[in-house]
Write a protein that binds this DNA or RNA. Structure first.
Lengths: 200, 200
DNA sequence: AGTGCCATGTAAGGAGTTACATGATTCG
DNA sequence: CGAATCATGTAACTCCTTACATGGCACT
């Protein structure tokens, strides 16, 4: 969905052809999300079918150029005016993995958390290095890429914080369960599972 | 991809049938990512085709039960052992939108940032309310959901921080450009557009 | 002459969504 | 009895990825 909108926004600026669109998209996002050329063409076809674009013949070099329509401009305006909804956030593989790790017996959750933490820290270091190498943004596309890069940094930092938080909470829960052991419910994994069965 | 792995992990615990898998998945993630039943069945078919699952006949109530295979267990182990790669992070619609907003002329970037900030803050408040309502985690599935919820909170907080950072940087860039105005290139949006036109 | 990039596609398949079809069971 | 929910699917479609086909053009 974001590709569709992104390409449309690029064409709001000026008519372009397929390959050029990929190049512009990648230069503005620092090639953070490599974009397959084939997908550009299929997306352009759908956008044309939906009346948001129209084929504008060929340019001086013989490239098949697309032009945005008034309906397309409306779409772009609406896109920028409407915040990205966090009501149904995109599925987060890491969150799903941890949710499964704590509920499926026999998984070493601490190891999963630690492994991820190491990996995310490494990614964070790579990002930081990239940012250090980047000069002051001269062109708009430099600024755009810098913002994208910083969004990755902020997200990775949040992920590390969350992982640390998970570890703390896991330690606390393990402690609680050990302390609150009673004849009726010693808090072991087996008993919890039993409670689940009963509740259901 | 995460659905596939998640369902497989659930079946590592015990054999289950389609509807049950959806229920278990949603109870462990607090229905954060509603899961379509139809998708469960198609995913199960593919998992069976790939030899990670096998049909285990019917249970006492006549449900079509699936059982994990040794290959499936290996897959689950590998999933937990391998960190989620942040090399090619999932496309972030918001980051793409802002990258386009700062490069396409005629877009009120500040308004986009502010609109998103308001929306994200609201989402954050909803999450916080949900967390306050949640009791201490008794069952493992409660703990899992709490962790998922907290991951959403951490991510939303990071998003707000990033948006504030964007605004600060935009203000700074605007100031720089106004100061460093020269006869050759004053860095205004209009000039940039002209340069683009000329390049074409 | 060959290698590699530009350029425009098509094909096949995975993953996901919405919607529909079809029965059984359960509950008011 | 009727409505809702459980349960198992199928169909159509979007989006995305990987891979392949084809042709031009440029550089060594």
């Amino acid at each position: 969905m974001s590709i569709r909108q992104g390409l449309l926004a690029l064409l709001e600026q000026e008519p372009m052809y397929g390959y050029q669109l990929r190049a512009e998209f990648e230069s503005r996002t620092g090639a953070t999300w490599p974009l397959n050329v084939g997908q550009v063409y299929t997306t352009l076809s759908r956008l044309e079918r939906d009346g948001l674009l129209e084929a504008a013949g060929q340019d001086d070099d013989g490239h098949a150029v697309y032009r945005i329509t008034p309906a397309g401009r409306d779409e772009v305006r609406a896109w920028f005016a409407t915040p990205v909804s966090r009501e149904t956030p995109p599925r987060d593989e890491l969150a799903i993995k941890l949710a499964m790790a704590v509920t499926v017996p026999g998984v070493d959750v601490r190891a999963v958390v630690q492994g991820q933490r190491t990996s995310t820290i490494r990614a964070l270091q790579d990002y930081t290095r990239l940012k250090a190498d980047a000069a002051e943004p001269a062109a708009d596309s430099d600024l755009a890429w810098l913002l994208v890069l910083e969004s990755l940094i902020f997200a990775a930092e949040a992920e590390v914080r969350w992982l640390d938080h998970c570890e703390a909470r896991l330690a606390r829960v393990a402690g609680d369960r050990r302390e609150s052991a009673t004849p009726l419910n010693d808090g072991s994994l087996t008993d919890v599972t039993t409670n689940e069965e009963v509740r259901r």
